[in-house]
Design a protein around this nucleic acid. Structure first.
Lengths: 243, 243
DNA sequence: CTGGCGAAGATTGTCGACAATAGTAGCGAC
DNA sequence: GTCGCTACTATTGTCGACAATCTTCGCCAG
């Protein structure tokens, strides 16, 4: 895979690099600047980002492949709406791949890697002690990405990054369940311990348990949102925003 | 994910559909019409497929995202060369995802699905009895794809299709090892049996064993090719074609 | 003979304009 | 009042031309 992030795209001029409409548009979509299902008109975007329509068009092609938008022929692009079902599918795939990477990390981890992991764990413990759930949540992906780096399977990492950018916009937070952060920390500790012990089977199992709980939590979030919507209106059982 | 194949791309006119330069170029690359690392000049391709350079450019963007080609700024596109290491990574990811789908298939399989699977198994048995290794090899992906369809995880399927199109060009065939087809058939039978029994754990295990053997075979193929190359020249340990 | 320098050629990147297509509003008939 | 047709508008798809960039070849000095 060539670019797992805007990183590996060889150097280019910085001026072009920071203005690349593709990256800017991606960030805008991921951070929610556009509503799900909102139309993305090429001319408007070209104006907004001070680029030609050609560049925008290329960006849309890329984002389409990444699954962040949908394009219908002659009808333009809209930001893609992730259904609850698809969010679940994404999490399942993530589950499978993170387990693979966890195994690999357990085999390959060097002492420097372990130091980093333990440092992140310590920071997480601190956030939890301060009841800083938000801070804890931000550390979560850091730990996982550090594990990815140890495993060094570029193909799997690229897939995970792409999936992440899709699911991040899904409305279902997975940590906000009462009591979850404390349990999550214990699970993370078990994973790191298994990596430190260079025990791939244990690491796989620990990661499986961790992400299994995440899946349950996601299901819980979906259900509770469904229940909530069932009260107000009785439409669109699969979609999640009324457009 | 929107298109897992040229299928879901809404209907368009047939004339456009069959002439879509993106699909034609993809097929050409997959079927080996271009050498690995060969340069893909936009003007040439435009002429070759009777399309404008704009369409070719869009096609190249797509194929870049799919990982079939690499594009360097201002230096054009080449067909991507899959290193032995990357082929291995791809197979590992495939392994993880096929196991996920096998589990799901074991849970969801209906009787009609089982009929299809058994029909494919029967055809495989027939090919093997006739020592038709090539025919057997062609049935192999059919069986796996049928299992994918049962599992119905669109996200995972899309990833697998993309990976497949990359790895198919890798020079390492995985079935040509002596005695492998017979063993492969037994493994496939075990998988189908586990699906029929609606036993996800057994199905996961059977698929894991099957693909584990494929991984071993791939490693064997890579090693033997490395040995072979070591005899002739002592260059480019990671790449596989001398350009 | 080798190595740097410069010009020419080849190829990609970008822009503007035009054609093709989908969606919409207005008009008339029943 | 509603249905169907037509013309219009908005937007995408495609093309050709030009600018920017990289590569190659030839030249000259050392």
């Amino acid at each position: 895979m060539n670019n797992l992030a805007p990183s590996s795209k060889s150097i280019k001029q910085r001026s072009r690099l920071v203005n690349d409409p593709c990256d800017r548009l991606r960030d805008a979509i991921i951070s929610g600047d556009f509503q799900p299902n909102e139309r993305l008109v090429e001319a408007d975007l070209a104006l907004r980002y001070g680029a030609g329509r050609t560049a925008i068009r290329a960006a849309l092609a890329t984002l389409d492949q990444e699954g962040l938008i949908v394009r219908e022929p002659n009808r333009g692009a809209r930001v893609r709406l992730i259904s609850a079902r698809e969010a679940f599918e994404i999490e399942q795939v993530r589950n499978a791949l993170e387990r693979l990477l966890a195994r690999s990390a357990a085999v390959r981890a060097a002492s420097g890697d372990l130091d980093d992991l333990r440092a992140i764990l310590a920071a997480m413990t601190e956030r939890l002690r301060e009841s800083d759930s938000l801070g804890y949540m931000q550390l979560n992906p850091q730990l996982h990405r550090r594990i990815w780096r140890i495993s060094d399977n570029q193909v799997a990492i690229k897939v995970l990054v792409t999936l992440k950018s899709q699911s991040i916009r899904s409305q279902y937070g997975t940590i906000l369940r009462p009591g979850r952060p404390a349990q999550s920390l214990r699970e993370h500790e078990a994973i790191v311990a298994a990596i430190a012990a260079h025990d791939p089977d244990a690491c796989d199992a620990a990661m499986a348990e961790h992400l299994g709980h995440v899946l349950e939590t996601l299901q819980w979030a979906i259900d509770s949102q469904d229940r909530q919507r069932a009260w107000s209106s009785r439409e669109e059982p699969t979609l999640s925003a009324p457009a």
